Simulated assay, not measured.
Amino acid sequence: MREMRDNPGAIEKYRSAMGRVYNYFPHVRRGTHYVRALDQKTGETLYRRHFYGGVAGDLRAARMMRELKPQYPSARWEYGKVQGLPEDVYDHAIPVDAMEQVINAAVARTGADDKAQGALRTLLHQSVSDVLKTRGWMRHAIKRKDVPGFETEDIERILWEHKSGLYGWLSKMDAARGFIDALYEIDATSQPRLYGYAARYVQDMLRNSDRVDQLVQDVKSLMFLKYLAGNLKTAR
């Protein structure tokens, strides 16, 4: 971001790379549970906030809904757990060509006219794409409505996670090509154990980190600070 101030064209290039979204800023929601306000008539989401549940999750949800009710007096409130697909679904995903055939077969069975089938096919493609994007940084490419309730504090952390996630996603794309070339060089018939180890290693390197991985990373950082940065002997 500091480099952008010294480069007049960098900001325009960054905006265009975000899918033609003017002045894009990442909207982030963190937590395992959610509260949301729904329009009584249309069912449209008016407000949604995420938070970490835990033992006092019910009490926190009740307090949030009570505090927010004056802003949405006629809304219907919901409280639940954030649902997502398990990592296994992504690691062993249906091939794209097979997914295309499944969508086409499902649309054809509706018996609708060609125009309606085309609209439904487009909708299904977009929905499947959005589900796959939710796994990692590409969730920022999902076209969503500007629903209130996203994080508005700790802006530095939001920007840091957004930019580091982008660079991680780009480097992961490059690494995936290299991993494929490396696996191609291993003969699974003559070296099954080596191939199995290499395949598992590739899966571990390319998968998204979960909350356990993030916790371990934080612990490693604390240990590093304690035994290196906090060691007085390092100053000599």
Rank of each mutant, 00 (worst) to 15 (best):
M1A: 11
D6W: 05
D6Q: 11
P8V: 14
P8E: 10
A10S: 04
E12S: 08
Y14A: 15
R15W: 07
G19S: 03
R20E: 09
R20F: 06
V21M: 08
Y22C: 03
F25V: 13
R29V: 02
R30I: 12
G31S: 09
R36I: 01
D39H: 10
K41R: 11
E44G: 08
Y47R: 01
A56T: 15
R60L: 13
E67P: 04
Q71N: 11
Q71W: 03
Y72H: 15
P73V: 05
A75M: 06
W77M: 10
G80Q: 05
Q83G: 04
L85C: 03
V89E: 07
Y90N: 04
Y90P: 05
D91M: 13
I94F: 04
I94C: 11
P95E: 03
D97E: 15
D97L: 12
A98V: 14
A98D: 12
M99T: 05
Q101F: 00
A108T: 08
R109V: 00
T110W: 02
G111Y: 01
D113K: 03
D114I: 03
Q117W: 00
G118R: 02
R121V: 06
T122D: 15
L124N: 12
H125I: 06
H125Q: 15
Q126E: 14
Q126R: 14
V128L: 10
S129M: 10
V131S: 07
L132A: 12
K133R: 15
T134Y: 00
W137A: 05
W137T: 07
H140E: 10
A141E: 11
K143H: 12
D146M: 11
D146R: 09
V147S: 05
E151T: 11
E151Q: 15
E153S: 13
I155D: 01
I155P: 03
E156Y: 06
E156R: 13
R157F: 03
I158G: 07
I158N: 10
K163M: 02
K163E: 11
K163Y: 07
W169D: 15
W169Y: 15
S171Y: 08
S171K: 13
K172M: 06
M173A: 15
A175I: 07
G178W: 00
T189E: 12
T189V: 13
Q191P: 00
L194C: 09
Y195I: 06
Y195R: 13
Y197I: 09
Y197A: 14
A198G: 02
Y201F: 05
Q203K: 13
L206K: 03
R207N: 10
R207Y: 00
N208H: 01
N208L: 03
N208D: 13
S209T: 02
S209W: 04
D210T: 08
Q214G: 13
V216P: 00
F224A: 02
F224S: 06
L225E: 15
Y227E: 12
L228F: 15
K233Q: 04
A235I: 07
